[in-house]
């Protein structure tokens, strides 16, 4: 009987074993570099438990003071997402393969967009606090730039999937670029755009809660103060209220997005 022969690589699981070895080596060196120390971890982890223990009974009287910064966080997220999205619409049209045929212009815009996307938003916040000073306006600018990078990509990917029939039909009548976009492109993508906008808003509400940590407005400032003063019962109030706000915004946004589809 002819039994199919396995070659050397498969027979001895060369690929699997080498991946495992590489991973182990990487884990070993990473632990070395980051100073992983399980003894300290084990001896100090009860410290973590102590913090959590103090968080167990939140100082609810603090909630009244938290209301305004918490709402400001949501306001920052709404404005930042809106400005970012408004700016993203023209850029995403110029970055879409099926609308703009100029390869070089498209490429330049895409490179700019992906460069913006590489920067995490707290880093942007740190930069903008240095530039614009402390305050919620800085938070709005940070979130706007961050959403711009993210939304543009989502948008041009949507535009690239549209049905080109209406576009060709409108173009054949001699319509300008602006008219084509308004009549043939926008109606096809508006629903998905709204959905992406809401998704970005969810992410921005989450991240705006920590922006204040660097001075960019919102609840984060109080988060920093209470943590610096070891006032964990108050930190707990802030974290719980952040959790509630995030949950509420997520629920509303999920409901609206389901309705949109």
């Amino acid at each position: 009987m002819n039994v199919p022969k396995q070659d050397f690589v498969h027979r001895f699981h060369i690929i699997g074993i080498s991946i495992a070895v590489i991973m182990l080596v990487l884990i070993y060196f990473s632990s070395l570099v980051t100073g992983v120390d399980f003894d300290t971890f084990m001896t100090n982890i009860d410290q973590f438990g102590v913090i959590l223990g103090q968080m167990k009974d939140p100082d609810w009287s603090y909630l009244a003071k938290m209301k305004d910064p918490l709402l400001q966080t949501v306001q920052m997220a709404i404005l930042g997402t809106t400005f970012g999205t408004a700016l993203a619409i023209p850029f995403s049209i110029f970055a879409a393969r099926n609308i703009v045929k100029n390869r070089i212009g498209r490429g330049i815009i895409r490179i700019i967009l992906s460069l913006i996307r590489t920067l995490p938003n707290l880093l942007l916040a740190a930069l903008f606090v240095a530039i614009f000073g402390i305050g919620p306006m800085t938070g709005v600018i940070t979130l706007a730039l961050f959403s711009f990078g993210m939304v543009s990509k989502l948008f041009y990917e949507v535009i690239e999937t549209i049905d080109m029939g209406p576009v060709r039909a409108i173009r054949a009548t001699g319509a300008s670029m602006a008219q084509t976009v308004r009549i043939a492109v926008m109606p096809q993508v508006a629903g998905q755009f709204m959905s992406d906008f809401l998704y970005t808003l969810e992410i921005n509400v989450r991240s705006s809660t920590v922006l204040g940590y660097l001075g960019a407005g919102g609840i984060g400032l109080y988060l920093q103060q209470t943590l610096d003063q070891y006032d964990y019962p108050r930190t707990a109030v802030i974290i719980i209220s952040i959790f509630v706000v995030v949950l509420v915004i997520d629920t509303i946004s999920n409901y609206l997005r389901k309705r949109l589809q």
Binding site: T34, G35, V36, T40, N44, I51, R206, V210, T235
Partner: peptide, 26 residues
């Protein structure tokens, strides 16, 4: 609930447990 707990806050709590440095980040 885990997702809603901001990473930065977790980092600060771990800094208080294991001291400032990369391990807290990990």
């Amino acid at each position: 609930a885990i997702r809603a707990f901001p990473e930065v806050v977790l980092a600060i709590m771990f800094i208080k447990a294991v001291g400032p440095g990369s391990f807290a980040g990990v």
